[in-house]
Amino acid sequence: MKFVDEAQIRVTAGSGGNGCASFRREKFIPFGGPDGGDGGDGGSVWLVADEGLNTLVDFRHMRQFKAPRGQNGMGSQMYGKGGEDIEIRVPVGTVVTNVDTDEVIGDLTANGQRLKVAEGGRGGLGNIHFKSSVNRAPRKATPGTPGEVRDIKLELRLLADVGLLGFPNAGKSTFIRAVSAATPRVADYPFTTLHPNLGVVRIGTDQSFVVADIPGIIEGAAEGAGLGIQFLRHVSRTSLLLHVVDIRPIDGSDPVEQVQTIERELASFDTELVDRPRWLVINKMDVFDDEDELEAAANDIVLRLGWTAPSFLISAAGQQGTREVCLQVQQFFDAERAARKLDQEAIDDVRMRGE
Rank of each mutant, 00 (worst) to 15 (best):
R122H: 05
D300F: 04
A21L: 00
W46F: 15
R353N: 11
N98F: 01
Q113T: 03
V186H: 01
F175R: 09
L159M: 13
L115R: 02
E291N: 13
R69I: 10
Q230W: 01
L266T: 03
G17K: 06
S132W: 03
K81Y: 07
D188K: 15
V235Y: 08
V95H: 08
D102S: 12
A267G: 05
Y189W: 15
N283L: 10
V329S: 05
F312N: 07
D275H: 12
L158A: 04
R122W: 06
I218T: 11
P143K: 00
D300R: 08
E257D: 12
E223Q: 14
H243K: 04
N283M: 04
L156V: 07
A298C: 07
L280V: 05
Q77W: 02
I218F: 11
D58N: 06
T94P: 00
V287I: 13
P138V: 00
T308Q: 14
Q328L: 03
V256L: 07
R139N: 08
T261C: 06
T183V: 13
R340W: 07
A21Y: 00
Q8Y: 02
A181K: 14
D349P: 00
G306M: 06
L165C: 04
G123A: 02
T192F: 05
S239H: 11
I214Y: 08
D254P: 03
G226P: 09
G36D: 08
L53T: 10
R139K: 04
P168L: 05
R114V: 05
I214H: 04
A21S: 11
E265A: 00
G19K: 05
P277K: 04
E26Y: 02
S173L: 01
D289P: 01
I301R: 03
A346T: 15
F288M: 05
G163W: 06
